[in-house]
Design a protein around this nucleic acid. Sequence first.
DNA 1: GCATAATGCTTGATCTATCAAGCAATTTGG
DNA 2: CCAAATTGCTTGATAGATCAAGCATTATGC
Lengths: 132, 132
Amino acid sequence: MGHGGKRPRRKRSEFVSQPNELSAVLADLRTAKGLSLREVEEATGKAVSNAYLSQLENGRIQKPSPNVLHSLAGVYAVPYETLMEKAGYLLPSEERGGRRRRLAAFAIDDLSAEEEEELLKYLAFLRSRSPS
Amino acid sequence: MGHGGKRPRRKRSEFVSQPNELSAVLADLRTAKGLSLREVEEATGKAVSNAYLSQLENGRIQKPSPNVLHSLAGVYAVPYETLMEKAGYLLPSEERGGRRRRLAAFAIDDLSAEEEEELLKYLAFLRSRSPS
DNA sequence: GCATAATGCTTGATCTATCAAGCAATTTGG
DNA sequence: CCAAATTGCTTGATAGATCAAGCATTATGC
């Protein structure tokens, strides 16, 4: 031991995160619902740890298991197949003959009436910025 | 899900061959086509080893990856989804669309991907000002 | 201000999926 | 009959998924 002062140095690991589409979707869904990592962990019934969620959202996991995706689909109230598709396990739904809702549509299902009204105004604003 | 951590120590499981529906289906498909394990390995372009196929058909693998199932679906000319279903990754009768949609949901179906992302961030903002 | 909780994150450890190599039986062909 | 090939199978090694703990920083309460 020796050298008095410093404790085990903590090296700053250079995370080579490769953000993919899935990680972005999962992060967006969680923040859109206003949930913390631990709240999601809890919502899955401890099936998915907050540690893992963090790695997932930061693109450090290449292939989360279908079980994990199933748990998260439940928490975020989005279709399991959609997450499977984002993870590259299934062909895009168009090529499988299926209609689909925008992911954002699922994020608003439990808004209050007041919030929904605000949201509609915001949508009008969004549209005013792009040609129809 | 994983197992990690140092929790109650788990004993090494003795290879209890537990043939499930998937293993039976895979074995039947292969013998029905008169193929050997190595021929199937070859047919997948070396994507799945004969060693693994053996374990798979004898129920020694709990959750083969979707990638493996995809390769085998190609070789045996059966639908990928069918094998996924046998493996327990998909529900047999997936019913979709039962939920009631918010009004606003109809207004976002034709947003661009960028706009949708903005929208999700806006939702996070909305939530941050009201309790759940 | 300070203790405490909450948040996102990193890391060490463990289990599982998966393959390369090898093995004992069986088949084939000369 | 025997060597070579084939077949199904087992096992050691490796990589990746996943979690329990713990850390740094920020928010919250007194």
